[in-house]
Design a protein around this nucleic acid. Sequence first.
DNA 1: AGCTTGACCGACC
DNA 2: TGGTCGGCCAAGC
Length: 111
Amino acid sequence: MEELPDYAERVLEVAELIPPGRVMTYGDVAEWLGEGGPRQVGRVMALYGAAVPWWRVVRSDGVLLPGHELSALAEYRSESTPLREAPRGAEGHLPRLDMKRARWDGEGSHI
DNA sequence: AGCTTGACCGACC
DNA sequence: TGGTCGGCCAAGC
């Protein structure tokens, strides 16, 4: 079994705090931890994200995770995460997250 | 030791 | 709305 680095463990812990229907950006998680940066969080999620609700940790522009668009979208629809539908005339495109409404700052979770 | 890469970000145009 | 740029920081080669 591989051992989970300490930092990775903290990142995953935060990911699990995010309520259904809300999301946090990579940068938000890093800032919350007061340690590392968006890219570090991104790496942790790439390596170990499968163990947690990975679809709730997203890019700040609200683009769905490349390679997992459909499974992410299924999760968002099922937990009613605010989405911005693709503009008309661009039917091939998938929706993006409505970051303004979906972004979660940690309210409620004892800080 | 130096250079590239990555589930990134904000500013700017 | 979308593309580029510089900054970011750890990991790999």
